[in-house]
Design a protein around this nucleic acid. Structure first.
Lengths: 175, 175
DNA sequence: GAATTTGTGTCAACAAGGCTGACATAAATT
DNA sequence: AATTTATGTCAGCCTTGTTGACACAAATTC
């Protein structure tokens, strides 16, 4: 078994700046995310969509009825950026807009059946990849991975994370 | 404590397609990576560099002397894309090229002192974020996180991952 | 009720960082 | 001597992000 944390500390030329940089995990995180997104990227390519479409569709599917402002908040892009891609998703009938019930200026975004189907199709390989990775660990390590990923998120964005399973590990089933 | 895996299975309209999609982790991975990269992004902004510069500098710093072809392989972009950004890093003296000793057509890429310093500066907050996240877990969970991330990488890319600590958890110290 | 603010849409121009195709050059290989 | 390989470079295109400006209807405030 490998050492838990081979600090390799011992001969820092300047002990004061002997800050240990975890390049290994930094790099792994890069590779992991790169391949994680590649699954969906290839499928998107075939239908002429990009990663931007995926992100929008994902969140509309996850939080049906969210408003444009809320979506902008989650995606952290400008409304002009959103508009271009969202328009395509609406034109292709993956997403529909309905007037807000309380505030009629708002536009609630909802996935259509077609949109739900696509969101599911895109998520499937990503979910399988995660499941496979989890399977190689111990049996009960999913909560740990979830904790780790949550902790990687900025404090001020934790609210975006805890929309559903507020604190609890959970999966959801599809249609 | 939250349930380990609240499958919520029970009433799938079609049991055959009751594929469980792990939307929670998919989304968490997105948020985690977004905030993970934002650390460096802000610093880069100030010096007029982008994420592309960071990736190149990171790998040149990690694998000093790697060739252009090797770098292209790791980054998975075209040489034309690389050229534009790499040229800036060379012009600003963050990276230097030396002729390959064996094959004089090759250009070995090396970080300069300036380049190393910047790479370190950019990695520091990312490393701290990871360390903080790990600290909230049990004491010995770093190997597990490492395993998970490695498993998320495509089989055919595992060689890119295991350049250094082939199988073992390790950290490195800086200058 | 009039004035202001808010939520959304849209136009225009621009930048970063991907892409493809084509071509050049030097060095290695056949 | 001919070919292949490693790299560089020019030119143009696409996606997805940006800013700034303006429009309009609905909600809110004075």
């Amino acid at each position: 078994m490998p050492p838990t944390k081979a600090q390799t500390a011992g001969h820092p030329s300047d002990p004061k700046e002997a800050e240990v940089i975890d390049f290994d995990l930094i790099e792994l995180f890069f590779f992991a995310y790169r391949d994680f997104t590649s699954d969906a990227d290839h499928m998107l390519d075939r239908i002429g969509f990009g990663r931007a479409h995926h992100r929008i569709l994902h969140f509309v599917n996850r939080r049906p009825g969210l408003t444009v402002a809320e979506l902008l908040d989650v995606l952290q892009i400008t409304k002009q950026s959103l508009a271009r891609v969202l328009k395509q998703l609406i034109d292709t009938e993956h997403i529909m807009q309905v007037q807000g019930p309380k505030d009629r200026r708002q536009r609630e975004l909802h996935p259509t059946a077609k949109g739900k189907a696509l969101a599911l199709q895109l998520a499937a390989p990503q979910s399988r990849r995660i499941a496979r990775a989890l399977a190689t660990l111990g049996g009960n390590d999913r909560p740990l991975i979830e904790r780790f990923l949550k902790e990687m998120v900025n404090q001020e964005h934790r609210n975006q994370v805890e929309v559903l399973g507020a604190g609890g590990a959970s999966k959801e089933k599809n249609a």
